[in-house]
């Protein structure tokens, strides 16, 4: 098990370095002067030269790459061009919104999807099953930004229960900040939950048809006991896979949802940084997002090993 973890950890590091290298090459090495991109074609040559020096573009590429990587370790990522604050500070501030938002969304989505999937599987080919499948179909079809607008219309404008957007900040107390995150989290979570519920349903149905469930029943376990003790853990393997994949979609969805709800999160930051050509910020956030996705995959791999003993001794 320890060996398995170490091997996965090594894969994680290699993937991270590869991802950062790709980002670096695309942004800084390929033809196209970052300084010109940032300042525009009308910029004065002296200003361009000054920016190049500030960005360190006068130094060779490998040296810049290593300095940049070291920055992730020390936390010194330089100054943002547009915000004039350290990038690491900027990212930390925004992460304090996007992190809880993504976490709330995945928790909410799982909390909705797993019971629904279980419910549908237990009522296979009956009304409850059809209802969950219909909900799943709807969730696949509805884009989350539209669903977000709908939530605002109902819960903010008509009912006035929750704020329509913006973020009061954590320093104003946890209550108001949480309230501001409820609608965005729901908007992110529901479409995901719809997909996850369908996956959970079919994973549970597949596991229920396995021979070992018949063995469990022949032992005298009730249908329900066989479901809890023998079906669920086996069904969790495909469910965890999809949850891992969904996390990447969640990050992409956060960019859109944060714009819909005017949340100053990481997604909104990367959106603004791209439109303002703040390449330093873009580069760092892209690597951060890639790192998050790679890390989630690592966690999913570990979960596989926890769930299924056959994968613990797996040699790759």
């Amino acid at each position: 098990m320890i060996q398995f973890c170490l091997r996965r950890l090594a894969t994680l590091c290699v993937t991270l370095i590869a991802a950062s290298a790709v980002v670096f090459v695309v942004m800084e090495v390929l033809p196209g002067d970052p300084a010109v991109v940032m300042l525009g074609t009308e910029a004065q040559p002296e200003t361009l030269a000054a920016l190049r020096k500030q960005l360190g573009l006068d130094r060779p590429a490998p040296e810049r790459y290593v300095t940049w990587l070291a920055g992730f370790v020390t936390g010194d990522l330089g100054l943002s061009q547009t915000y004039r604050v350290p990038v690491s500070e900027l990212i930390a501030d925004r992460l304090a919104i996007t992190g809880p938002l993504a976490l709330a969304a995945i928790v909410l989505s799982t909390a909705i999807a797993l019971p629904l999937g279980l419910f549908a599987a237990a009522r296979h080919r009956r009304l409850g099953d059809a209802g969950v499948m219909a909900f799943g179909q709807l969730g696949l079809a509805v884009p989350n930004f539209w669903f977000g607008l709908l939530l605002v219309l109902v819960f903010s404008i008509s009912l006035g229960w929750l704020p329509a957007g913006g973020f009061p900040g954590w320093q104003g107390g946890i209550g108001p900040a949480m309230r501001a995150l409820i609608l965005p989290a729901v908007a992110l979570a529901l479409p995901q939950a719809a997909i996850l519920a369908r996956v959970a349903r079919s994973a549970i149905l597949d596991a229920m048809a396995e021979d070992y469930v018949r063995t469990a029943r022949a032992k005298g376990l009730t249908r329900r006991a066989a479901l809890w003790r023998h079906v669920l853990r086996n069904a969790m393997i495909p469910i965890v896979t999809i949850m891992g994949l969904q996390f990447s979609f969640l990050l992409a969805g956060a960019i859109i949802i944060e714009n819909v709800f005017y949340l100053p999160g990481l997604g909104r930051l990367v959106f603004q940084a791209i439109s303002q050509r703040d390449l330093i910020v873009v580069k760092d956030i892209v690597v951060l997002l890639a790192g998050t996705v790679v890390f989630i995959n690592f966690v999913v791999d570990l979960l596989y090993a926890v769930l299924d003993p056959r994968l613990r001794s797996f040699r790759t």
Partner: peptide, 27 residues
């Protein structure tokens, strides 16, 4: 069904053809 659950594995037991798939792989 309740009565059958009390009998199965207790007074009546069964073994199946496929030993490969009849045991739960995760326990």
């Amino acid at each position: 069904e309740e009565r059958l659950c009390a009998l199965r594995g207790n007074r009546i037991a069964m073994i199946f053809q496929e030993p490969m798939t009849s045991l739960n792989p995760v326990h």
